[in-house]
């Protein structure tokens, strides 16, 4: 069930210049959250920001009743969120959207491809997959080493590969040029900048690999009520907040010329 809740900031960690994480504790019983779902954060104390900001759930600790967000500072709202400290409250509407399809059998060959803030939900996904007996390959891309907000933490759940445009970490080049991308997989999940997801989906569908992408869009309500966040899928205009944010790439064939 969706809720509006004041969470308490338990921990804050800076990750390079552009990223930070917030660990948030629920005041009582946290709702179940599946990988790929998101929250809508109310940004208080910022004159310019009225609407909530959608942010993916990065990690969940059900026992402790905490969730973690990984946020990239890009504008007015995220800049204000970056100023928040431990002990302060953060009002969330959660859990929102449909998460990643987890219907993979034990031992399946699975690839996760992330870029920038898009690695956020893939961490929760990798953790959940590993609980289900799947050890995924995790391929993370970025412009340079400083812009890869999550890396070593992934190693407990799968095999980590990195690609940077300038070669400052891992393979030099795009994620789709990394040797591990060409290996064969049963399924690919991707979240990151649109051109990256498009290239990943293109290759996946060409190779007959099932592919799930997590889309972003400007949002107002976050619950499928305002129709502001639509994307033009093969099934017509669907809301990223309610019908997504995760879509099977099969539905994006027309939009992305797949």
């Amino acid at each position: 069930m969706k809720q509006v809740t004041d969470f308490i900031i338990e921990e804050r960690e800076q990750r390079g210049a552009q990223y930070f994480t917030l660990t948030l504790r629920h005041p009582s019983q946290m709702q179940k959250i599946v990988p790929g779902q998101f929250v809508e954060v109310r940004v208080d104390g910022c004159r310019e920001v009225m609407l909530r900001r959608p942010i993916s759930v990065h990690d969940v600790d059900e026992e402790r009743g905490t969730l973690k967000l990984l946020i990239q500072i890009v504008g007015r709202g995220t800049r204000r969120l970056a100023q928040l400290g431990v002990g302060e409250r953060l009002n969330l509407v959660y859990p929102l959207g449909n998460g990643f399809d987890l219907g993979v059998s034990e031992g399946s060959r699975v690839l996760l491809v992330g870029g920038g803030a898009g690695s956020a939900p893939l961490y929760h996904l990798a953790k959940e997959l590993s609980h289900r007996g799947v050890r995924p390959t995790i391929l993370i891309g970025g412009r340079n080493a400083g812009l890869i907000p999550v890396r070593d933490e992934f190693e407990q759940f799968g095999d980590l590969c990195i690609a940077t445009d300038d070669g400052s970490l891992g393979h030099r080049g795009l994620v789709t040029e990394h040797p591990c991308f060409a290996a064969s997989y049963d399924r690919i999940y991707t979240c990151g900048p649109t051109p990256m997801m498009k290239a990943v989906a293109q290759s996946a569908l060409q190779r007959g690999i099932e592919c799930y992408v997590s889309l972003e869009n400007m949002m107002a309500c976050g619950v499928g009520a305002c129709l502001c966040c639509v994307v033009d899928t093969d099934e017509g205009h669907l809301c990223v907040c309610k019908e997504g944010p995760v879509f099977n790439a099969e539905k994006l064939k027309k939009l992305w010329n797949l």
Binding site: M50, N217, M218, L227, C228, C229, V230, V231, D232, H237
Partner: peptide, 9 residues
């Protein structure tokens, strides 16, 4: 409905 983006704050 209309093409998107459909909203801005």
């Amino acid at each position: 409905g209309n093409p998107y983006p459909r909203m801005v704050e």
